[in-house]
Simulated scan of single mutants.
Amino acid sequence: MIFAHDTEDSLVAAVELVNSAEEPDTLTEIDQLAAFFDKHGYTGAHARDAAELAAVRALRAPLRRMLTSDRDTATELVNQTLARHRAVPQLVRHDDVDYHIHAVPPEAPFPVRIAVETAMALIDLIRADELSRLSICADSTCEGLVLDLSRNRSRRYCSTACGNRNAVAAYRARKK
């Protein structure tokens, strides 16, 4: 299934944010948060301070729950998030990005935009009954999330490192 670019972008960002909590934690400094903001093309308010960093870090567990829940629970969490932040979806076009959905104003705090954009993206997965595109890494030593946007749904690992570690272990097991 092909999703809108803003859906995919929001899901990729949310999965990266959730996975940043895995060891080693990759979101401990304000500069890392700024790099995350830039990498994922966020727009609007960005305080670049310790309070914002703490608020974004605090989002990781609730987003993980939202992204790993069954369909009914995910729907409930999405609806709660949208209601809490009074999300009002609107089509916008800015910079070199064609029409896409923003559901909070540009002055909304960065953590609010992350939560709402993730919830909006999850709406597409729930409606298409495609939550199976989100899973936990197949590496038994890892709890990272996997977003599988491949056509054949073959992605099993959250990172190349986990995939390589398991390939090496399988190779060594066959050689014994």
Rank of each mutant, 00 (worst) to 15 (best):
M1F: 01
I2C: 07
H5R: 12
D6A: 01
D6Y: 01
A14V: 05
V15W: 03
V15C: 07
S20T: 11
A21L: 06
L27A: 08
L27P: 04
I30P: 03
I30D: 07
Q32C: 04
A34T: 07
A35Q: 13
K39S: 14
K39M: 12
G41T: 08
A45I: 09
A47E: 05
D49G: 12
A51L: 03
E52L: 10
A61P: 07
P62E: 11
M66L: 03
D70R: 04
R71M: 13
V78P: 05
V78Y: 06
N79T: 14
N79S: 13
R86V: 01
R93W: 02
H94N: 02
D98A: 11
H100R: 15
V104C: 01
P105N: 07
P106W: 13
E107A: 14
A108G: 15
P109W: 08
V112D: 09
T118P: 06
A119G: 11
A119L: 07
L122K: 04
L122V: 09
D124M: 02
A128V: 09
R133Q: 15
L134Y: 11
A138W: 10
D139G: 04
S140Q: 13
C142G: 13
E143F: 01
E143H: 04
E143V: 01
V146M: 06
D148Y: 12
R151H: 09
N152M: 13
R153Y: 06
S154R: 15
C158N: 05
S159N: 14
C162T: 02
C162G: 02
G163S: 10
N164P: 03
V168T: 09
A170T: 11
Y171T: 08
R172M: 07
K176Q: 15
